[in-house]
Design a binder for these strands. Structure first.
Lengths: 221, 221
DNA sequence: GTCTATATATCGATAGAC
DNA sequence: GTCTATCGATATATAGAC
């Protein structure tokens, strides 16, 4: 769909769904440079539209990134549901942790829009809403392991989510070393850590620590 | 030390250590607005110097933020060393995880400069270097628990660091709910998760997963 | 309704004067 | 070591063409 060589860059967009084109181009750009360096102007330039055109569809840079984050939450939810669908509860929880890290690596730009964009969650409740269903993938097997105790369920689920998130964040960080070789190893580490947490979950369900809110399972900025 | 009311903002700096003043003002600004919104110009304005002055001391925005990150690594290392100094190895590891989360909450701007600034680690090796000593606080007790097995030591230490980091990131994210009430509860959760990981560490030391680099313990961007 | 053209303001960074 | 002046790039807002 690239138009004939206009001066000043490829013009892949003519007239159509600019909103959708902007989301796709943003994902593309997030894969090339840091999310902090993303700009509406560059997205406009790549699409061959005026820099002001996106403001007809998004109030600003934050709104566009929030739309990408919502999309990321949906895709991550699909992947978690797919990879953590079978097995006993412990296996499903470990598979969810592994899938979380795998998604962060394979879809780095999307994951960063969801969990590393610094978006203010209160100004973009649609992200938290889209992420809410993600938490169910962790909560359901945790509930089975906690034997119906909702407080214990929340603590186990939160611990596994935090562990998976921490592994993903440090992997993208380069803390676990460069290169794709580390990715699958870290995903396996996250799954193993989840199994370890399950084995030692008596520490999590003890009465010595303050309660956590029961519905707080997913990163959003 | 505020000078007499000059027009256009408080002038706290006259002639002296501009480099140090910039680092302190940057930390102050990071506490007021998002790190993404930090600008050299605003730091200059607040100090009452020209916008070009900082470039005598820092090559650019990234260099200034990297200097703040190095300072953050030092302070975090001090706090970890202080709070994880006593007790048996399991207690020290759990205390390190708790202290990690507490630092992230209490020194949010510094922690974000260290772990959430998106700095390219390869372009700022001094950050990784400053963070290296941090890893020792986790590695030493992990080594005692792993009985001298270096691969097992690295896996246990990495898992605890990742879990602590995940709890800290989601806490700052707002995922665990707003307000300072959540902070200490999450810190306790991270400590409990560390104990659970230790209890279930047989899962981490199994031969079924790929090795991780033995010296990769700390977040840097 | 959708997009272009344009104006204003701010930021990062550089060059040269003091 | 700091300032003035300036450049290029950017976000935002407005007015008007299609």
């Amino acid at each position: 769909m690239t138009g004939p060589g206009q001066p000043g860059g490829r013009r892949r967009y003519h007239h159509g769904d600019l909103r959708e084109a902007l989301i796709e181009t943003t994902i593309e750009l997030l894969g090339e440079r840091d999310i902090q360096a993303f700009s509406m102007a560059e997205a406009s330039r790549r699409l061959g539209v005026a820099v002001a055109a996106p403001y007809r569809h998004f109030a600003g840079r934050e709104d566009l990134l929030a739309a990408v984050a919502v999309r990321a939450a949906g895709l991550l939810g699909q992947r978690l549901g797919r990879e953590a669908a079978t097995g006993d509860p412990a296996e499903r929880l470990a598979a969810a942790a592994r899938a979380y890290v795998r998604f962060a690596w394979a879809q780095r730009p999307l994951f960063q829009a969801l969990a590393g964009s610094g978006l203010d969650k209160r100004r973009h409740p649609e992200i938290g809403q889209a992420a809410q269903s993600l938490g169910q993938v962790f909560l359901a097997p945790a509930r089975a392991l906690a034997g119906g105790d909702e407080a214990a369920t929340a603590r186990l689920s939160s611990a596994v989510v935090a562990t998976a998130h921490g592994h993903a964040a440090l992997l993208l960080d380069g803390t676990f070393g460069p290169g794709p070789a580390a990715a699958e190893a870290v995903a396996g580490q996250a799954a193993a850590a989840a199994r370890a947490l399950i084995d030692g979950r008596a520490w999590l369900t003890g009465p010595q620590h303050g309660d956590l809110p029961p519905d707080s399972p997913v990163p959003t900025s």
